[in-house]
Simulated scan of single mutants.
Amino acid sequence: MTDQTWNALLRDQLAWHWTTQLRERIDGLTDDEYFWEPAPGCWSVRPRGSGAAPVQAGCGTMTIDFAMPQPDPPPFTTIAWRLGHVIVGVLAVRNAAHFGRAPTDYQSFEYATTAAAALAQLDAEYATWLAGVESLGEAGLARSCGEAEGPYAGRPLAALVLHINRELIHHLAEVCLLRDLYQHTHEETRREAN
């Protein structure tokens, strides 16, 4: 039996997926893939003023589409939207609440104008999250989440770490699948580029 701590195991779970299954698969993401709308009425990240969603949030030249409450069924979302959700809603908001990042939310975030910029934002937030989890040690994982996590305030931070691991693995796998779909439905464009 190895001398692993729960903190290391939780970090390793995410880091393994990030390194072996997720990050390399989205490396080199193009702007065409990033903004591609595979179905009518997609939610995406768009130039300010060009969206049709009830809410278009963001502080820069780009906004992210959403609505509260969410429509039933919810609109299909682009790679840009899914990355925006992961970068802001999954990581940046939690990094701000727990690990000293400047406060942010969907409304105040400056969304990337390119796929490369979005991947840089993703890498930065992921690195902050992973370092933050490591800084918790074993005792920090048992500490309660606090007010930032609303109805889950009394749950241990370990539960939040598990939730974030699931969210990252789930949503980034969706991004990989959408990228595969784009590449298989745009085969001729890919051949022309080579």
Rank of each mutant, 00 (worst) to 15 (best):
Q70I: 08
L22H: 02
L14D: 03
T114F: 09
G150W: 04
D180F: 05
R46S: 01
T185E: 15
E37H: 07
G89S: 04
A53T: 00
G154Q: 10
T2L: 07
T63C: 04
P74V: 07
P69Q: 03
H184Y: 15
T30H: 04
V93D: 07
G60L: 01
H98Q: 15
G49R: 01
N7R: 14
W6A: 11
Q107F: 04
A117K: 13
G58R: 00
I87V: 11
E134R: 09
A159L: 12
D123P: 15
Q56M: 08
C59N: 15
Q4V: 08
H186Q: 12
H163I: 09
T78M: 10
T128F: 03
L22M: 08
T63W: 00
P38H: 15
M1A: 06
L157V: 14
H186F: 14
R190T: 05
R48E: 10
I169T: 13
R166G: 10
G84M: 02
Q21I: 13
P151S: 13
D31T: 11
Y182D: 05
W36K: 00
R23C: 08
A158P: 03
P103C: 13
W18S: 07
A124S: 13
A96M: 13
A57N: 03
E149F: 15
R46L: 06
V88A: 04
E125I: 00
G51R: 00
E110Q: 07
R46K: 05
H163G: 07
P54R: 00
E174R: 04
R11P: 00
L122S: 02
N95W: 02
V133F: 06
W6R: 11
R82G: 02
E174N: 11
L119M: 08
F76V: 14
W81F: 06
L10H: 08
H98G: 11
V161H: 09
T114R: 07
H98R: 10
R166W: 13
E149P: 05
Q121R: 09
